[in-house]
Design a protein around this nucleic acid. Sequence first.
DNA 1: TAGACGTAGA
DNA 2: TCTACGTCTA
Lengths: 158, 158
Amino acid sequence: GKNVNTPNRIGHVPGINVGDEFQYKAELRVVGLHFRIMSGIDYVEIDGVKFATSIVSSKKYDYDDKFDADVLIYTGEGGNMINKEKKAEDQKMIKGNLALANSMIHKREVRVIRGGESWDGKGKHYVYEGLFLVDNYWLEKGVSGKNVYKFKLCRIPG
Amino acid sequence: GKNVNTPNRIGHVPGINVGDEFQYKAELRVVGLHFRIMSGIDYVEIDGVKFATSIVSSKKYDYDDKFDADVLIYTGEGGNMINKEKKAEDQKMIKGNLALANSMIHKREVRVIRGGESWDGKGKHYVYEGLFLVDNYWLEKGVSGKNVYKFKLCRIPG
DNA sequence: TAGACGTAGA
DNA sequence: TCTACGTCTA
């Protein structure tokens, strides 16, 4: 059940600072940074319009997100790249991808969490990177030859 | 990574009482009751012999565990009943099933956690039921027609 | 690398 | 009911 104190909102989460580290997606949920345990893009719907609230980057599977200090090139979701039994498909402008596109047009802040390997090689860990704005997005051919969305996010100064 | 304070041991876990409730398998791990997030039978290996430390009962999938106040009929693991794309197979006397059989022979305590639906219908919850001994085990034909282990566990009085 | 009684939301 | 950037052990 969802007995979580903090609701999913756009922007800063009180008590959370840039550089804070976490071990599990479940922890991100508890502190209010990112509520979807198995999904990289979290979003809310306001008056029928989806807006991204947070994204978690990864190097796993075919998600080769590029992280520079202040710029992130983030791979969209969908296409079933994980499940090897299913064929890869073009990503669609729905759900989280649509939310990121809307966040760009409406200039809404997006929380960015960087996912990576944990120090001991087993498991993962997550670092809160702060608030970003979606600057641009485009389509690329992924490893599978199918269309993949790429979102460029830039850190909000200050 | 496994940065958990309590190691996986047989028997009582300090600070945990019968009736204590939890929401996630991950919580069971943190408090030291059950370390395997996606597996029902947890065990340790001592001098090359596997012994069960804890089991989590369930009503999901084809795991129709029967719970009476002091007796649990627990379904063994394996057989791939979950993954519908794979054919069901006979369960084997390996891993967790072997650990439970060894716990019976050597009269080792097993922690029992009862898994069930959460109050709101979404999600699940887990209740610590206390220490049990494996009294008996046998093979049955499961729903799929394949061999399934059933373990009878009885609550240790007091 | 694959398998395992996981979770939440569309 | 299915999908989703999970998480651990063998």
